[in-house]
Design a protein around this nucleic acid. Structure first.
Lengths: 287, 287
DNA sequence: TTCAAAATGGAATCTAAATTCCATATTCGA
DNA sequence: TCGAATATGGAATTTAGATTCCATTTTGAA
């Protein structure tokens, strides 16, 4: 006696292996489901039944025969699949919580944070627009030096970017406002440089000011922020949006850090390529 | 009078441009919808309303105000988006990889980083020893103030800890070596305080010096590092070990950040509990 | 060929979700 | 500070969809 499948891939397997023993209509249903998993995730029983050429009852029976309480239950697996194979976040948290008793102790909390951050990371690449990413890199590559600004929470991201850029030997300066000299630091930015501003709700005033100043001066501006509604978006040449995990009303930074890491390394790879090209054209010239 | 949006991106645009003229609740709704398009595609009005912190009516009103006959009609756009944008995580990675040939472009890289960091996060809670975590929290809770030190890459983690502690209103000082004054800053640490040193291979000399100084003076020392073989471990009262992801020989920081987040919030929860206890015993005294 | 068992379709029912409506609260201008 | 206009929450209602049930059909063994 086999278990009811808990995720899409085991369901898929089960259907495939049981297929020969199914009745004509159920086979027809099976074929349809495996061929159109996307459709199944969204549509209603009636719609699917029609498309599959069976009756709604057949779909229900099919679900029941695989151990589900009804079609809806089975449909959840088709939906979860679209969420990058991740089952429902809340259910998992809940599972951990009940397993460890009522009071969430620090280890419990660690699980929750790790989980929430994983979730954020899994969605990050889907949410980042490839064109935007490329354009940000174009700007950085052209820039003689990159200036980076982030206040409060965003400072962490800014300092990481600064570190990573040093690592790939791209000139980088952290606009840190030491001695209250934000605006002086912005004034020192050359027109051949670029500026990266990182800012999340509630959007520190210092960051807005710096972004505005750079915008006014026509300095190429890339921003990393959390929403299209951020006041920095209208000022930016390119805006990269990240969505961070939140646990106990405290937001993480993993997605932003991961994006930052990517920006720096991608930039490093571009630089290497450019250097290679330069070398080989030099060789050609010498030959 | 503008048209009802027919696809997700025009809806997104419309929401963004109309945002300022919306009421408080509708703005809240707008933010939620734009931040969680995936969720919106699947969940029911009631679930979404709860997550967004509004009532179901608000979601309907929101949909109506953008010209839809109801929420369901608007939801179709969120679904359509998933339908053509997201085949499947693995398929996606593969598609990106083959489409771009051998050289991984920036988007490909983003997938790799996100994936690697997810992996690191998934192992983090298992690798962290619960007792160690608790002991670190004990030390922090007892401390009047927490001093934090991290150089280079670890500086990012240190500054995040500093931010997070301010957030929970625990006195925190970043030992930043401004003006080359590391040792002066360590000398200023009181015996009732605690020190957190973050250091990863190749273990910056400054961090070792600071840790040694604190150890000599008998100041409670917690370290976050990457191996039991780290020179900081013998000096520490508690050592927390994290294992970071590595892509293109570049290490991430997500696991350390996640641990840091946990430390801060767990500490915050302890403080709250202590405060509650204090209050209720005060009440008892008054009665 | 017949009959019992299994499968099927579709109407009837039941459930859950979407929507409407209205009383209350909030905002904003006078 | 008041009152009108607008916004909001939540209960009541409606609607759509899932599920069940049963009469009919098909299958396959004797």
């Amino acid at each position: 006696m086999s278990q009811t499948p808990q995720d899409f891939s085991s369901l898929e397997e089960r259907i495939t292996s049981d297929y020969p023993s199914l009745s004509r209509r159920l086979q027809q249903t099976a074929r349809f489901l495996l061929d159109n998993p996307q459709e199944v995730a969204f549509a209603t029983v009636a719609q699917l039944a029609q498309q599959a050429g069976v009756t709604p009852s057949t779909l229900i029976r099919f679900s029941n025969s695989f151990g589900f309480s009804g079609f809806s239950e089975m449909q959840q697996l088709f939906r979860a699949r679209l969420f990058d194979e991740l089952p429902n976040y809340n259910e998992r948290i809940h599972a951990v919580r009940t397993a460890t008793g009522e009071t969430p102790d620090s280890t419990q909390l660690l699980w929750e944070f790790a989980d929430a951050n994983q979730e954020a990371l899994s969605q990050l690449p889907n949410r980042i627009n490839s064109q935007h990413l490329e354009r940000a890199l174009d700007i950085f590559e052209k820039a003689r030096a990159i200036h980076i600004m982030g206040a409060r929470r965003s400072f962490v991201v800014a300092s990481y970017m600064s570190y990573a850029l040093h690592h790939i030997e791209k000139p980088a300066f952290l606009v840190n406002g030491l001695g209250g000299m934000y605006s002086e630091q912005v004034k020192a930015i050359d027109h051949e440089d670029a500026l990266l501003v990182v800012s999340f709700a509630p959007y520190a005033q210092e960051s807005r000011n710096v972004a505005e100043e750079a915008h006014r001066r026509g300095i190429p501006l890339v921003v990393i922020t959390d929403s299209n509604l951020s006041p920095l978006v209208p000022l930016a040449d390119v805006a990269l949006l990240v969505h961070e995990a939140e646990v106990k009303s405290f937001r993480g930074l993993t997605a932003s850090l991961c994006l930052t890491q990517t920006l720096a390394i991608a930039l490093g790879m571009r630089q290497d390529k450019a250097l290679d090209r330069q070398r080989s054209s030099d060789d050609a010239g010498n030959a």
